[in-house]
Design a protein around this nucleic acid. Sequence first.
DNA 1: CGACGACTTGAATTCACTCAAACACTGTGG
DNA 2: CCACAGTGTTTGAGTGAATTCAAGTCGTCG
Lengths: 247, 247
Amino acid sequence: MDQAVFHPLHSASCAVVCSRCNLREICLPVGLTQAELDHVDRVLVSHRRPLRQGDSLYRPGASFEAVYAVRTGFFKTTRTANDGREQVIGFHMGGELLGLDGIGTGRHETQAVALEDSQVCVIPFHELERLSQQLPGLQQEFHRVMSREIVLKEGVMLLMGSRQAEARVAAFVLNLTHRLQARGFSASSLVLRMTRQEIGSYLGLTLETVSRTLSKFQAEGLLHVRGRQVRITDAVGLQDVLDGAVP
Amino acid sequence: MDQAVFHPLHSASCAVVCSRCNLREICLPVGLTQAELDHVDRVLVSHRRPLRQGDSLYRPGASFEAVYAVRTGFFKTTRTANDGREQVIGFHMGGELLGLDGIGTGRHETQAVALEDSQVCVIPFHELERLSQQLPGLQQEFHRVMSREIVLKEGVMLLMGSRQAEARVAAFVLNLTHRLQARGFSASSLVLRMTRQEIGSYLGLTLETVSRTLSKFQAEGLLHVRGRQVRITDAVGLQDVLDGAVP
DNA sequence: CGACGACTTGAATTCACTCAAACACTGTGG
DNA sequence: CCACAGTGTTTGAGTGAATTCAAGTCGTCG
């Protein structure tokens, strides 16, 4: 069950230092000096927390205490509408921060679920605020992260405002590959960590429409799908779909 | 009339001080002590900037230097998609912050346009960051504001994920009245500052659908529309539409 | 190997869109 | 004062893209 997970790590505790983390170039401590990094190492990350596939990192209504940096694995965040419908509002991979939604009210508004076995760095928020009073670089980066989160959501709004399913799915696939590429993965080959249902929920489409659209892309030679394996064969063509070019 | 509450103190330029602003209870300096407010007064708000209806506060690509607190008036923010389509991604009224999208990259991603004659307080961002190093209360409130902005956008995503135009329009109207109510305006009577086109763009609908939906609400006795004048006659009924109750 | 969940594909339906026309409101200039 | 243009809004009719409903297939894991 979810609960089991809270245990401090057997293995990890000696390695809970940002300065040696392989994600330090894209995670919160980006741009800090070595001295600042040392400082961060000492006080910022309280511990790591491992999660099994399906575990929840936090749930709606839970008291907000910390933000979380994804270290390994993959997450979705979801929100429940008034009518009970649950919608995916984000997918998150290594180096990204989770839990920012809780700052405003002191309670989490969303649920974060691990889509594969994962590990997060727990960053007590009061610690982060305290430390960022002393380290302008850390404060700045945190502000940048939050701002980018806003811009990202706005981008999704833009996407959902367009009526065309194809543009949405193309944008989704390209966005995923870009983020994976920034983390050193292949630009053309990826494994979807989420179901068609979850993709559809995120994009405001039904799972059938997502499936049909991917099949159509395959028929058009833009990519190759086989279950959750995707190989992109024509990134430019996908970009054209996104840009509304219909040749 | 409603308007009276909002009217710029004609005395404005000598009163560029948060401590005497009628919006201080809902704007950035919320929760600060008198001593802290004094400090804020001295250095935070560089000046006020008036805008005529139709003026842009900033445009996409513009260098990000400051965030802006809406003092009087009403704004929309828009973003342009790859295909050239321009979409409204936010409406903003007194006490709300504009320009947060620029922090992440140092350039504005969006455009902010005054929908009526307006006035904003210009808050140089480096000043805000510097001051919030000294005033934990200010830092906290700024973080809360950004977080709420994220939650707000997520809420819109949720809305646009639902296929039903009626739910979207109901949510839009209710949200607007709630925000106006928090500012001391009537809970039942409001003037839309934006066109049907702009509402539709924001909600991912066409202007015709917005118009039809408002007419339908009127036929059902939920509200009364006459151009941009809206009077809500059955807020509970509107909430039911939003919640998916179809009696 | 069998069962379950995930995925694909087909057919019919529906809701919002597009296109089109007419109406309301506002401000301008004769 | 009214005619007029221009913008914004309402309403109607027909269309279409995505949905819903319904099989059927694939893949994985006990």
